[in-house]
Nucleic acid binder design. Structure first.
Lengths: 208, 208
DNA sequence: ATTGGTATCAGCCAAAAGGTGGAGGGACCA
DNA sequence: TGGTCCCTCCACCTTTTGGCTGATACCAAT
């Protein structure tokens, strides 16, 4: 009975069935459930009690991946969560690891890499795609540049072109607080205007 | 022998196997080949002579999806190409259709939608996801969205985070003129702030 | 010759953004 | 317990943007 049970969380049907097909080729790994949203993931995690949860961060509507990770960690801390996503945004990596992710794979990872991550996760090993790892490493080296979770969140919304007022509404904070966060973000990114911050953020990877 | 042969082009292994698994459930559809890049796609298209090519636009390295479509259309014009991608960037849609795509599906499309698109494509029908269709329609309605050379120049500098004053200096024009151009750009892009314009411009491709 | 598009410039005004400095509460850790 | 982040908020002030209205000039096509 040493089959590793896996729960897949992704809003794309094709990605789910792709992973299922891929993981199905491994005798020691079995997909026990699927979920298309953060909410569904919470339910499914309790129902199936999987060993590993493979989760996309970007979920169309409702709860986002980071929030889902946080809640999962609270409710069922024994389950290992591996982030499996397309983009390797700086902020996402930090936030995901912070929220309690065990691994971080990009969707173009080789099948072997995925298998290794799943097997490693149950043993408490943390596996990540090479580009992700290097980025995370870079961030740890100059901690001045790391945005706090809240700042990252703000920056991400910033790249959608929102005004300070809208940012405040979206995050349920005052415009004053938005300005404070922005000032910190500018300082950390080494820019002076929101325009430059957006340009930096989007080009600096990921954030598309 | 009325099975529709399909070639899958996507740099993500999981997406390919997902599509394969999904399409495999349909008796009248068969996957005859896979490719992970534009170059591979050209080869595979000649080798397998598929009826339909399902292709992701965003391919990691090498030739991008749009270029691949163009070349495929030249070499094997009988094959129907369906774009199957995650992001519904305005520019991508227009460029893909322009390059000769028969359909445009988003990756979160329902399986039925995908089947319908494949079947429709061999009959010369063009199928697209609802959000894509509406966006395309919008674009056709205002062809005014084309920026003049000067405006494009300005927009490009804008994405570097310059202020109006700096833009003026850089282009040897007054700040007033900069503002005029910007107003025109905003109108054409359908945004109200420079922040949104930058976000749109950078994501809208090319400008990275 | 008139029209249309592009590029250039002005002035005025309201709104938004950015800079400065300060402040309190909560979490975490030594 | 004290220090250190992080998040939250406020007031005041300057600079920057954006919206509006209008103008001149060049060029090309009708």
């Amino acid at each position: 009975m040493n089959s590793i049970s896996v729960l897949l969380v992704d809003d794309h049907t094709v990605v789910r069935s792709g992973l299922k097909a891929l993981l199905g080729t491994q005798a020691d790994i079995g997909v026990v459930g699927e979920a298309a949203s953060g909410e569904e993931a919470l339910e499914a995690a309790q129902q199936h009690a999987p060993d590993v949860i493979l989760m996309d961060l970007a979920m169309g509507a409702g709860m986002d991946g980071i929030e889902a990770i946080k809640q999962l960690r609270q409710r069922t801390p024994k389950q290992a969560i591996i982030v499996f996503t397309t983009y390797d945004s700086d902020a996402d990596i930090v936030r995901a690891v912070d929220a309690g992710a065990m691994g971080y794979l990009l969707k173009d990872a080789a099948p072997e890499e995925i298998f290794a991550a799943v097997r490693g996760a149950v043993q408490g090993k943390s596996v990540m795609s090479a580009p992700v790892a290097s980025r995370l490493f870079q961030q740890l080296r100059n901690p001045d540049e790391i945005l706090t979770p809240r700042e990252a969140e703000l920056l991400s919304l910033l790249t959608e072109g929102l005004s300070n007022r809208d940012l405040g509404k979206r995050l349920f904070i005052s415009e004053a607080t938005v300005k404070t966060h922005l000032a910190h973000i500018y300082a950390k990114l080494g820019v002076e205007t929101r325009a430059a911050a957006i340009a930096t953020a989007i080009r600096r990877e990921g954030m598309r």
